[in-house]
Design a protein around this nucleic acid. Sequence first.
DNA 1: TCCGGCCGCTCGCTAGAATCGAGTGCAGGA
DNA 2: TCCTGCACTCGATTCTAGCGAGCGGCCGGA
Lengths: 345, 345
Amino acid sequence: MVAEVISERAQRLLKALVERYIREGQPVGSGTLLQDSGLPVSAATVRNIMADLEERGLVHSPHTSAGRVPTARGYRLFVDSLITVEPLTGEALRGLESELVAGKSPRELVASASRLLSSITAQAGLVTIPRHNRMALRQVEFLPLTGGRVLVILVTNESDVQNRVIQTGRDFSDMELQQAANFINQRYAGRDLDAVRDSLIGAMHSDKAVIDRYMQTILDIASRAFDSSDEVDDYVLAGERQLLEAAGPERLEKLRDLFDAFERKKDILDLVDRCLRADGVKVFIGEESGYQVLDDFSVVTAPYQSGGRTLGALGVIGPTRMSYERVIPIVDITARMLSQALEPV
Amino acid sequence: MVAEVISERAQRLLKALVERYIREGQPVGSGTLLQDSGLPVSAATVRNIMADLEERGLVHSPHTSAGRVPTARGYRLFVDSLITVEPLTGEALRGLESELVAGKSPRELVASASRLLSSITAQAGLVTIPRHNRMALRQVEFLPLTGGRVLVILVTNESDVQNRVIQTGRDFSDMELQQAANFINQRYAGRDLDAVRDSLIGAMHSDKAVIDRYMQTILDIASRAFDSSDEVDDYVLAGERQLLEAAGPERLEKLRDLFDAFERKKDILDLVDRCLRADGVKVFIGEESGYQVLDDFSVVTAPYQSGGRTLGALGVIGPTRMSYERVIPIVDITARMLSQALEPV
DNA sequence: TCCGGCCGCTCGCTAGAATCGAGTGCAGGA
DNA sequence: TCCTGCACTCGATTCTAGCGAGCGGCCGGA
């Protein structure tokens, strides 16, 4: 994408326009814009410039003789080069500090973060559940169930527990499972789950000749227990209400689709996953996201990490017309604080 | 509450009115009503009867010269004595049968039930998380954390795992905790958590003289681990979208409040708890529930149980103008099937 | 006493016309 | 290059009239 080249005057006007529109939500006319920008020119000049910006697809008139409204590209330019972010202060910051503290369980932290994001930004907050497979194993336990199934309990990372049921070929005795668990606990505690699995699979294949059949089955169960492919990604959403708040009726249709997407989860997860690679805050404006349901909404996300590994992402969903200068730093700092709180003690 | 005494004719008309209004959502006039009911009288007579019903507070005119609309009391009478329920058949039933099967974890079952309720009734579905303290203990495990905290892992009932962190007076060694766990597993496996706790507390007090101090601390940890007072009740909600669907704009205000209540959880939980005592389906119509946020909505709930104990409740939330004759049997059967699926193997 | 037919009235809904005013685009001049 | 002045557009608002569903009341008949 080529950076837009527009005159400084035009930038100033665009900035004023976006800021005004975010505040008021109504098309902005040349007069208002002139006042806001404080430029020493006349309204007619402003109009000329606006016509120019319109040609470049940065602003748009809902109809002749209405003011202008920023387009997605307009917001993009604004966010990329015109924005003046407002650092977070006061009560909101204190709220984050007091709720996102080390020692709480990941589950609680994620729920808190989501709630905080929503309440501070007055929009919907979203935090993905940490990828367990990136977390360090503390202890594993196997319990036999009927029908060859085994209940696996994984304790990771201080105080997070997850459990899953795996299907095996036959019933195992308490004894066998105990031994398998001991084996793994002794050899693999402290390594992250993905590493454990890879190592187990490696062991199964390479040592095939050496290890006895008994050992083989144990390894088999264990590697299956650490298989992360059936782990469902998920997220915690808070403040759907805020979306209703923002959208007047008639956006209702769009909102329904969005709620649908929230329930399907997949699209939303895909989008949020995109921000996992890079560091820092990412902003998806309107149709940029590529998902139709989000056409009228923007998403601001940032990844969070612990122990040097990216575990997930969090973010805020709101109308395209959101206050980016407030939301961006909030998402940024929340991600940092969540990361910090998740750091193993 | 005194049962309403109204003539058979009036009943028939009220029934027709409610059914029609549920279908169309618009005030029903005397002409339409006459057709629907098939009564051998004239529209004028119908009007007379409607005027009578209006006096008794069973129906209501939005304004002169509009048709009639049922009031909460009208719906109540309808639900209590006029309704003809439609037994559930076909695809929906098969969906329930295939998803709510024994062997899945309670967590999955609850999520499925919620989703199914929502999709079958086309309204919001809600299932409370089972009360763990009513479930039978299979195994407990304690893991030491820093700062005198202990991670407690409780395996109940086949395949459900829950974990909590408790704060104790001092750090414990792996060994001590292991012993405490063994002690409990041997003595209490198979009893439900509440019983275990009571028994532990009893043991602590009565045998004080007999047991040594070591045992005393172990009992102390253990009873704290089984304390259910800090267990947060919670529920899984699905299909909020459906509520948007039903409510035209202008109900938007109400909807916001409802979504707020969903996030607060407390009110909703209180309401749903009310149905835990009795068996069978309960219907709360509009303002009957006593919660303002639910004024324009109705809630149909039923408790579910396992192993002879009531574990929670499920239900459906939708507009007062919901199709009770469809929803009631659906809630009923879902509760039964969930109960069955939760039954320990 | 109860019911049906008739009639006049009420009131929300809709369409169309008139008006308003914010804001535009453009021409012409400094 | 920029400003002034002006005609024009078009959504929003207001008002009016007309329509029609539906009600209540009255009266006459079984």
